[in-house]
Amino acid sequence: MIAIVIVSHSRCLAEGVREVADQMASGQVTIVPVGGVQDQEGTHLGTDPMAVLQAIQDAWTPDGVLILADLGSAILSAETALEFLPPEQRRRCRISNAPLVEGAIVAALEASLGGSLDAVNAAAEGTGSLVKVARPHPDPRGSTP
């Protein structure tokens, strides 16, 4: 069964996404949240590549690790973390293009059903085109009701 790493600028957000995803997976999937940067003044928004690397190693399984990140430097941190992994481990990691929350929910459930790394990632990335609110087609005349 694959594992999942949640990377967010906010530690709270990463843990919240883990909470939701964990319920979808009925606690069967290893899901590791990572986020925020610490200095002497406390925790701030941001991502630390070495913390992401540690999260990947904590989550590690030979079946693979799917990394879901929020955006921007979270992706860069994940990419940097992968560069520090041995090539054989790096090959079994994917950084997903999925939206963080929706992707994590779907990935956790699919992973709990035993999906492969690529199958789980494909399902997670499918959430990117999910329609949440069905809206009527816009009026071609441009007027609003």
Binding site: I105, A123, G126, V131, A134
Partner: peptide, 10 residues
Amino acid sequence: KSILQIMQLQ
């Protein structure tokens, strides 16, 4: 068998 598709049932 797909949560993604079920969520589209509205």
